[in-house]
């Protein structure tokens, strides 16, 4: 292992332990690392946008010898308009660029949310309850229909949950609790995995290098 590799391992171990020290008590070392983290992340963004947007998406296509896209100066100016947000007096100018982004995104969303999510999900819910796949498949199909309808009704607030609507919403909350329980189990799993990743580094990489 080279000197640089050893230095990097110890540096990472120091950072890891410095952040974990917060669990015992709030301390200045933790805050120093936190401040460096915020700065490095902002610096990373600046470097990334400079390269991926200004150089790669604007400068290169506009200035290349073969088929230059000179008209890209328009989104370039729109982009610069966003910076008027830094001066409250002129910040209204940024609305023009923002409206373009919001409008375009809404245009894509309007179609894709319906075509890509609502229709296929509804289609796969409306299946024959009695089918050739056997009793288990039929039972599952019934669970799915009841679950989807009762969940939708539980989140439907335009009418008071009374009578049939109230009973269905009640069924919905039981279904939702089971799903949220599964979510909670998975969330625990995810958070634990993130800690395991750091412990693997400390034990296998850092201590393992001694």
């Amino acid at each position: 292992m080279s000197g640089m590799e050893i230095f990097v391992l110890w540096l990472e171990a120091f950072i890891t332990l410095a952040i974990f020290s917060f669990l015992y008590k709030d301390n200045p070392v933790y805050h120093m690392v936190e401040s460096v983290f915020a700065g490095l992340s902002a610096g990373y963004y600046i470097g990334l946008y400079w390269k991926s947007i200004i150089l790669q998406q604007l400068w290169e296509p506009m200035t290349r010898a073969d088929n230059p896209k000179w008209w890209l100066f328009i989104p370039g100016i729109f982009g610069l308009m966003m910076f008027t947000r830094l001066w409250p007096k002129y910040s209204w100018i940024s609305r023009i660029a923002l409206a373009f982004v919001m409008g375009s995104t809404a245009g894509v969303f309007l179609i894709t949310q319906l075509h890509g999510l609502v229709l296929p999900q509804m289609q796969k819910t409306m299946l024959p309850l009695v089918n050739s796949k056997g009793l288990e498949a039929s039972f599952l199909a019934v669970i799915v229909v009841i679950g989807v309808i009762s969940t939708l009704i539980y989140f439907y607030f335009s009418k008071e949950h009374k009578g049939f609507l109230g009973v269905t919403a009640k069924v919905g909350i039981w279904f939702i609790m089971i799903s949220f329980g599964a979510h909670f189990g998975y969330t625990v799993m995810g958070r634990v995995s993130l800690l395991i990743g750091r412990v693997q580094f400390l034990i296998e990489d850092w201590i393992g290098s001694f």
Partner: peptide
Amino acid sequence: GVNMAVQRGIIIGAALGAASMSLRII
């Protein structure tokens, strides 16, 4: 079974909300 049905309900509801919000923006 149950989890998938609930998530499907939430996906349908949220997508309808997103589509209507998109229409309002346009």
